[in-house]
Design a protein around this nucleic acid. Structure first.
Length: 211
DNA sequence: CAATAGATCATCT
DNA sequence: GATGATCTATTGC
């Protein structure tokens, strides 16, 4: 076991029972690990109970959203676009819905395995950051599937660990990616200037030279 | 670099 | 029957 992983400790269940926005922000800098593969969380999005039409659960409990209404600290994994799976953590107390989508990680261990899962046995990967800079990309790289839906994150093969960073992490808050409702809510948390985020936290402008 | 098309199916109306 | 918390390849400037 590497020193890197030995220095981490699994987040307790109560960590996830807090407000969804707090959990989303606090997860930045933590380590998501599945077996030999792991990465540092650099980008998250909060999905809320109140006033958030972009969430999967704003209409209430369905077979798919059932786990989101359950106790915190469990995985919510959903399938979209006929081919992609994305990983969330369930937040808020039991009975209160809330979820945080993990949008990007910085690869830490098991790089070769991740590359094989993403690109097969062909040699050479496009780039390191392209390995895990998107919710469906990191799920594939870490082999997180719908089979993990509802599993606990404080025990078993799929865990999230705290990381003692020597320096405080600078976090940018932006609107969320790819949503077509509640687009203006500032619920995306990105590690400022980290090259492994899915998109820069830079605003778009008609004049790119302004940036 | 930016914009767009196509892949492809579970979920809910 | 429409839509989607996406990704990749391709086209266009």
């Amino acid at each position: 076991m590497s020193k890197l992983l030995a220095a981490t400790r699994i987040l307790p269940r109560r960590f996830y029972g807090a407000e969804t926005t707090t959990v989303a922000r606090s997860l930045i800098g933590c380590v998501l690990r599945h077996g030999e593969t792991s990465g540092m969380i650099v980008e998250t999005e909060a999905y809320l109970r109140d006033g958030d039409r972009a969430s999967h659960f704003w209409r209430g409990i369905t077979p798919r959203t059932k786990v989101i209404f359950g106790p915190p600290g469990h995985a919510y994994v959903y399938f979209v676009y006929g081919m992609h799976e994305c990983f969330n953590v369930v937040t808020e107390p039991d009975g209160v819905p809330g979820a945080v989508l993990i949008r990007a990680i910085e690869p830490l261990t098991g790089l070769a395995k991740m590359a094989t899962r993403r690109y097969g046995s062909r040699d050479g990967i496009p780039s390191l950051h392209a390995l895990t800079n998107g919710p469906a990309k990191l799920a594939e790289a870490l082999a997180i599937t719908r089979a993990h839906n509802g599993c606990r994150l404080d025990q078993g093969a799929l865990t999230i660990r705290q990381w003692r960073s020597s320096e405080p992490i600078e976090i940018d808050i932006t609107t969320r990616i790819g949503v077509s409702h509640s687009e203006d809510l500032p619920l995306r948390y990105v590690w400022k200037l980290n090259p492994f985020v899915s998109r820069q936290a830079i605003h778009r402008s008609a004049d790119p030279s302004l940036f």
